[in-house]
Design a protein around this nucleic acid. Structure first.
Lengths: 253, 253
DNA sequence: CGGGTTTTTGAACGCACTCAAGTGAAGTGG
DNA sequence: CCACTTCACTTGAGTGCGTTCAAAAACCCG
């Protein structure tokens, strides 16, 4: 290992610098729907990609914020301790996801980000991103959309407060499924990259409950399960667990 | 009532147009810490203030997004239906708060906003705000901070997933208290502007549980309670309900 | 293999829910 | 002014889901 990769950073000669334009996940990432000008601006921003080994910490809660990270491949979880010091997983990130948006406000990371498997992220210096957004209104819009999207995503997660365990787990599985499908992978067969404990810390359930629920889902024939390999056999039924009365307009709220 | 106020909008002659510079809550709102130039930009943005009567809908889920709203006075709740069609309150907004940030991404409101009491908001046209942010890097930063802050706020609410009812209620009371204090009001004596049902829909508890918990808080001497008037008698104890092990660094997460 | 971790399974408990009834204050109409 | 309605809240009793505590099983990696 050379000095330059000591911290997982991969500096490259200019000709080989990371390029959004040629990135495999560009359509699911910040450059999505961007014009040529915005691509060029972004290409100029990203000097480094960083490898994060399984279990390795990308950044820690409380550290100074300087970079937005964009996942190139792999999976990363964000978590922050709850009132008892027990970790609460706030998100599972995959290819194209932006990490660190919650840190802009305070200048310090509110979460700790850990790789669930060997992964790679792009480092986007926020100060330089700001300059680029000042140049390009379109890029500013794109980024603010991403921020707003994250607000909406967390609101959806908040809705789980009123769900029971069965519904929460179905919600997680369908969410993962939809995101894999969007990335072009199979939405019906995939690997759970996180442990049962991580799922529990995300859903607000204990590891035992997760295990029991997965077992029940298997027994009922809704999923096929082999360790962390999962296949959604009856997506319709999983959706019906969540669908009850949602979607139809409310008389009052 | 004239035509121009039919929908609660108050158009004003230019000389009397709403002005952030002279607004009572400017330091808790978008113009906070802004320079003279940003104030001027903002002043040019806001053409209307809007009165929202108690129970009146400011905007409804699904409606096209055009405005960010800033609360001038009063209280507004945001809610969206959960998977069973039951409303889930995502936020209680008060003076200085920005409403509608979750709608930027999709161009449609994800929540329905209803006034809890007679209130007034500023209408900030998002398209014109974008122009202004293009002009002023400082304003762009300020707005993105607000977006990021909202992400962080929702993450904190997410932590309630692991709390029991007692802790959730203590958390809400202390949160309201802190926000009132920040606005210069009393943090120890205030009115609950929302019904028990709203509190329950926010905390993910039933109305009966809220009632029982408030009763217990009163019996234990932690609060004084008379209908919706509340006084925090033992803030220390309320905080200790949440403090258990939080704050100290984690060995692992 | 062997040691540690992750996952599964079992049994009993407790918190918040549901269902049900009752209280109290505010508003309405004769 | 008082009977009546309505709405918000309170209180009580019983139930169920997810928890805790405990232990076994399966898996992983040296």
């Amino acid at each position: 290992m050379t000095d330059s990769t000591l911290h997982g950073c991969i500096p490259l000669p200019v000709s080989l610098r990371p390029s959004c334009s040629s990135c495999a996940v560009r359509d699911a990432c910040l450059p999505a729907a961007a014009g040529a000008r915005e691509r060029t601006l972004l290409d100029g921003l990203i000097a480094y990609r960083r490898r994060v080994a399984r279990e390795e910490v990308l950044f820690r809660q409380g550290e100074a914020f300087a970079m937005i990270y964009a996942v190139r491949f792999g999976h990363i979880k964000s978590s922050r301790p709850d009132h008892r010091g027990h970790p609460h997983v706030t998100a599972f990130h995959m290819a194209g996801d932006l990490i660190g948006l919650d840190a802009i406000h305070s200048g310090r990371h509110a979460c700790t980000a850990v790789a669930l498997e060997d992964s790679e992220v792009c480092e986007i210096p926020y100060s330089r991103l700001q300059d680029a957004m000042h140049e390009s209104l379109a890029l500013m819009q794109r980024f603010q959309h991403a921020l707003s999207y994250e607000i909406g995503r967390e609101q959806s997660v908040l809705l789980q407060t009123n769900m029971n365990g069965t519904e929460r787990l179905a919600s997680l599985l369908l969410n993962l499924s939809a995101r894999y499908a969007e990335l072009g992978y199979s939405g019906s067969r995939f690997q759970l990259r996180m442990s049962r404990a991580d799922m529990g810390d995300y859903l607000g359930l204990t590891i035992e409950t997760i295990s029991r629920l997965l077992g029940r889902f298997r027994d009922e024939g809704w999923i096929k399960l082999d360790k962390r390999d999962i296949e959604l056999l009856d997506r319709g039924h999983l959706q019906s667990l969540l669908a009850s009365a949602a979607g139809r307009p409310l008389v009052d709220q």
